[in-house]
Design a protein around this nucleic acid. Sequence first.
RNA 1: CGGGGCGUAGCGUAGUGGCUAGCGCGCCUGCUUUGGGAGCAGGAGACCGGGAGUUCGAAUCUCCCCGCCCCGACCA
Length: 576
Amino acid sequence: MLRMSTLLLRTLRDDPADAEVASHRLLVRAGYVRRIAAGIYSWLPLGYITLRNIERIIREEMDNAGFQEVHFPALLPREPYEQTNRWNEYGADLFRLQDRKGNDYLLGPTHEEMFTLMVKGEYSSYKDLPLSIYQIQTKFRDETRPRSGIIRGREFVMKDSYSFDLDDEGLATSYEKHRNAYVSTFDRLGMKYNIVSAVSGAMGGSRSEEFLAPCPTGEDTYVLCEKCGYAANVEAMVTKVEVTVDAAPPAMEVFDSPNTPTIDSLVDLLNATFGPGHTGGHTLKNVLCVADGKTISVLVPGDREVDLKRLQANLPGVQELRLFEDADFAKHPGLVKGYIGPQDAPKFGITVYADPRVAVGTHWITGANEKDKHVRFVTHGRDFTVEKFVEVAEVRAGDLCPDCQSPVIIDRAIEIGHIFQLGRKYAEALDLTVLDKDGKSRVVTMGSYGIGVSRAVAAIAEQTYDEFGLNWPREVAPADIHIVATGKDDEPFNVAEKYAADMEAAGLRVMLDDRRDASPGVKFKDAELIGIPFIMVVGKGLADGKIEFRTRRTGEKVELPLDSALQTIITEITQS
RNA sequence: CGGGGCGUAGCGUAGUGGCUAGCGCGCCUGCUUUGGGAGCAGGAGACCGGGAGUUCGAAUCUCCCCGCCCCGACCA
């Protein structure tokens, strides 16, 4: 039983000055966490109980699915991360340190290497597969900018699992099992979430999905079709193209366009020269980029921006991507800034990619590759061709759902889980092989699955808090019921003690506010702030043989007679 | 890493060259109070982020450093 009289807890009346988002503010005010350094937090008893509740639920669901729990060190030697090249690849986000002999170590940001090596060390036969193992571990990432309290810390608790299979079908099955386990986990955590397709890009086109908890303070942006349920990461959104194509557009026609280096100025000129009705959508924007040192051009309708993240995600294999800069124009005198057009790309030796909206047969108004000149009726397939279509234009609310053609909305969310088919990257790098039926050595294929455990505390807080404070789903809450005793006599306290003991005997987790010196107002405020889902008040109602029972989420209050209250409450709570 | 803001007691804050650094919450003691963050009285608690400088005198001005928050880039 938790007793307010002795709990290590001091609630704060004022919001802490350094907390902006609701979960951070309330978790600090309600005495769940305290900040130690940027992105590094201590958990006080209430917070730690909550965190462990979430861990417990995750564990139960993982175990249910037949996955086995293991535990790796957080402090790891350099060597395995050298073999996969992540000692270098991970860059500055990796916390590195040395022991007294000067050997390099790191604080694990994620544990692919260790999982892979563990399996390699124990198993060598296809008969041992499939295997899924997981751990709940503190992870470290030296984020350039930790933010939003415990949503994005530098030290955080994560559940990570890995599956090991002989072939793709096995991997697909393991992936599906994890997906199902995640669904039941997040359902039990009482969270609202969407499962969205993510880009698997660099990993080789295999499947990847994110579990996103919608909430305005989230840092992920995703696309959602409210009609059919299609959900996708912005990077993974597929463009639905609806174009009508003129059978035979007129031949290309160059026209003078002095001082019109931007789309806006071009539209003004078009309306003045060729009559009203022209929009940015009639023009073709040529955005030059440097991809791994090579100049490329990407084409989007003039009323769209290029989304570099989408471009990069959809150009597999490209490591470094940036926009053309003045220095690059200086090196390519043929490319006139503000007057670029795709029709001369072969001459310039530039690879051209296009947004699907720039479909074959469409014609555009674009730069003439000559200062102060534009050209119209530039037709895809006749006057220029592209290397390939790539998802590159920014996604907007109102764009059409690729599945059902309804307008989509754009929403923000916190990423609470990510599952993806890793493939053989780590198994190859670390030489994890097993012998198959024919005695042949086969590289194992892996899946990788994560849940942000400490982040889930914040995400649940974000999704459930109200004007009075935190407001936990029952399984997550530090207790099932918060019993408040008020009054100056012993009686209400004795009665409250008795109820608390009886409820505990019935299997409920009880928080008892047995403080004799706190006023009723303080106790009520604290109970609401702490956010335990049910509150019982033993006080002035005793005179009429009644206690009060409140539901935190709805604010509903009922008076219950002393003799039947216990059973009523137990039933109410266990059925909630 | 770029831009912006902030650093005064456990928390929230006032104080822009001048006396012993002020207030609220919280904490301690006593009395009163007990259904919505109680009242009165008394008290403890601050090398004003650190260092250097200017000055008769610095929380206050200057320089450097450190830390923290927000936006962006980055990350997932």
